[in-house]
Design a binder for these strands. Structure first.
Lengths: 153, 153
DNA sequence: GTAGATGCAAAATCTTTGCATATTG
DNA sequence: CAATATGCAAAGATTTTGCATCTAC
């Protein structure tokens, strides 16, 4: 009842209604960790066949408005949604596409720096950092090196 | 001839050809700082009316392949491309959409941390950090506070 | 009962692809 | 001349909108 209570009260506080579709969407997001609207749709459909993709988009928007889910852009494609409580920073390898997750508090120092320097309040729970993962580093370094050397002369 | 030389040699090294369209696209990206394919298209069109949006996409891909431009996802919409030399971190306000830019080296410590911890080589030049800008912090904080208080009881 | 949500179909975006033609090296 | 790039039209993919119907409260 805890989870449900949270959804119900949070929706009500914003003058929104509790519907089975919204419950299912929130459940799907929580179960999937992070997922695109399409993935959420598929998940929801496995329980309720008739739910339309339009409803998924609208439910995700609604849940995001009230702060129960967030979205992040992990790569080229569609945004991925995740539950509010599912907090971590994504490390996206631009080479192989692999996504690693690390705790948000690794960014505490940076957050403090940005706050002081620019008055910017970093939201580390939204974050995707791109770079090269351990596995790809060997090859990638070689590539860059070759290019850099040729470039210099 | 420096700029042009770089484009020419870099393209050639990858077995690609120098075309007016590619030059214009690269120029546009450099002039615009960061821009969506559509914005690049408009810019290029102001000089060469007939250049097709398809060509913009292909040119951006080509230039990205050879490392002269990169793209970042700043928000919901289209990716924005920027020139390789145009390095900075974007601070994207999820409230008002404003984009601030700060030097990459603010992330040096974090990069070192991630390298040691996860073997991940952070590419700070690709980066968009989301959060709340100074201007929006007042309102946003109030919002969160209200919500947090109600949530707790 | 009424405001708000859903489903469906259609439109709007954004991006990619196929192919004939044109251009670069 | 041969390999590549471009333009155009059409197809794909993703997301949004309009509207009639339905549902939560």
């Amino acid at each position: 009842m805890g989870e449900t209570g949270s959804l119900r009260t949070t929706l009500h506080r914003h003058g929104m209604r509790v519907t089975p579709q919204r419950r299912l969407v929130l459940d799907a997001v929580r179960e999937l960790g992070h997922a695109t609207p399409d993935q959420v749709h598929r998940r929801v459909r496995s329980t309720a066949r008739t739910v339309n993709i339009t409803t998924i988009y609208r439910a995700l928007d609604a849940l995001e408005d009230i702060g129960l889910v967030r979205h992040t852009h992990l790569g080229h494609g569609a945004p991925t949604y995740s539950a509010d409580e599912h907090e971590h920073v994504h490390l996206v390898c631009h080479r192989c596409g692999e996504i690693d997750e690390v705790p948000c508090d690794l960014l505490d120092d940076l957050a403090e720096l940005l706050r002081r320097r620019s008055g910017f309040e970093l939201d580390a729970t939204h974050l995707a950092l791109s770079g090269t993962c351990r596995g790809c580093r060997g090859t990638d370094d070689a590539d860059h090196l070759e290019r850099a050397v040729e470039e210099t002369r």
